[in-house]
Nucleic acid binder design. Structure first.
Lengths: 269, 269
DNA sequence: TTGGGATGTCCAGCATGACGGGACTTTCTT
DNA sequence: AAGAAAGTCCCGTCATGCTGGACATCCCAA
């Protein structure tokens, strides 16, 4: 601790302003101006300037008691993303049908530059609410939905990812050296799907297949999830086939609609 | 059109950076760096600085072809809002039941400082997809869902709103002077609901009732919508009763859960 | 309605850090 | 592996973001 005279002040003013958004969480959805000043370490004037800019953009909104909460523009931007997203549009119907037919939870994930995100889901009847849901971030190296995406990234990206995350990759059982890593991914690629148990949520079995655009680039994945005990090993291959079939249908649909937005993430990791 | 009157260099750097988000729309979901430079009028260095800050915050994400799209943080923040929002949590189930029982579309609106937003909806079978949906902004002075909220704002807010928007208010048929305005709202308040036809979408009839927190402050509204022809005037009072009953149930639920986030917007308008 | 406290805005001088042009590096494509 | 595209770094300059305090406005309770 260097004393509380110049606390956090890291990054540019742009970063500091955007950093304010990070304090708004489900645990603490509303912040008083005073607490924000204390937290940010900025002066009163400066903080008000940030708040004004964020309010003008609609990212924050004033609520009773001199407090602030996340603003309407976020919901609006999310809608824009939903309407543009070929994975949601093309994958939704097959995913819903797959979930209905199998009785398991369905989920649709999208690869971004910095994260794999769940963008749509069908919770199975009786599954804990909010187990998966739109807006949940997922690790790149764990869980079927992420691994099956990873396996289809172009080689030069995998190279960069490997040198940057080699310990994480080894810990995830994807190989301790480059050859083992490449090989593990090749196996997933050849299978056309990925099955994992308890990697993202304990005791949960996941099966996922990749989603491609017209150029054959991975955009995301379509999968199902359930308690591992409900699917005996013997039943898994047939289930994987159904997931892959749904994913193929999703690809067909997604290529037809919204081609201009079917762009894969770049600079992944 | 005044030609190239794009918003060049207005406001602070904070405003200019956040203004970049506005160009990402359903019509133009992906922008190349070059186009963003041209559009914003900033220098290459400056624009890259903005992009870097927005990317670090996750609001923008790089995609193939040197382009940018809206980023994963938006979906994540939307999820935070959804999970915190007492109106969605408390109003969802009654709204869904009401929609199922009546066969009409259901919608749930939330009042923000700068806007009334639809935060949840059930499209009726056969209704045009996306007629209403989460993330759609609505005018404050038109449509049952908005008007019924307006009617329950505290007097001093109405005063400010009236002087600021008197022409809009008069055009919306809510009264040309302060007394007429107060009176129009009092009638809505006494009825406990509001019925409108074709104010937000042509030919669409809407019925909405207000949602309050434990302190009796308006947070939003719960309503239904359908083609006006499907509901003869004689059937409307009974329907309004059902909407109000659903809204009452929503209030009960909403007061029980998430009390810390049940704060009304302030500085409305 | 009226007051008083809380909440938010405005101001002006100072110094920081945002700006812009260009060189350099990394990443992507072929 | 090479060429092209995309993104980063650097640094001198000066616009503008920062600060503290005075002022205005809003909001709640009598």
């Amino acid at each position: 601790m260097t004393g509380l005279s110049s606390p956090r002040r890291s990054g540019s003013s742009l970063d500091r302003m955007l950093g304010l958004l990070d304090v708004f969480t489900t645990a603490a959805p509303a912040w008083s101006t005073e607490d924000l000043i204390r937290y940010s370490g900025a002066s009163r004037s400066t903080l008000y300037r940030y708040l004004k800019a964020l309010q003008a953009a609609g990212l924050l909104s004033p609520v009773a008691g001199g407090a602030w909460m996340l603003g309407p523009r976020i919901i609006e931007l999310d809608r824009t993303m939903r309407l543009c997203d070929p994975v949601s549009a093309g994958g939704g119907p097959p995913m819903r049908r797959l979930a209905a037919e199998t009785g398991f939870s369905g989920l649709l994930c999208l690869l971004f530059s910095g994260a794999v995100m769940c963008v749509d889901d069908v919770p199975a009847a009786g599954a804990p609410a909010g187990l998966f849901s739109r807006g949940q971030k997922r690790p790149l190296f764990a869980g079927a939905a992420s691994k099956v995406i990873l396996a289809h990234l172009p080689p030069h990206r995998l190279r960069t990812l490997f040198v940057k995350h080699r310990t994480t990759i080894a810990a995830a059982g994807l190989g301790a050296d480059w050859d083992a890593f490449r090989n593990a991914l090749r196996l997933i690629r050849e299978a056309g799907h990925c099955v994992t148990i308890g990697e993202f949520q304990p005791g949960v079995l996941g099966i996922a297949a990749p989603l491609f655009n017209a150029q054959g680039e991975v955009l995301g994945s379509l999968g199902i999830a359930t308690e591992a005990g409900r699917v005996p090993p013997s039943a898994r291959p047939a289930l994987a086939e159904r997931v892959m079939a749904a994913a193929r249908e999703a690809c067909t649909r997604l290529v037809e609609e919204q081609p201009q937005a079917a762009r894969p993430a770049r600079a992944v990791g």
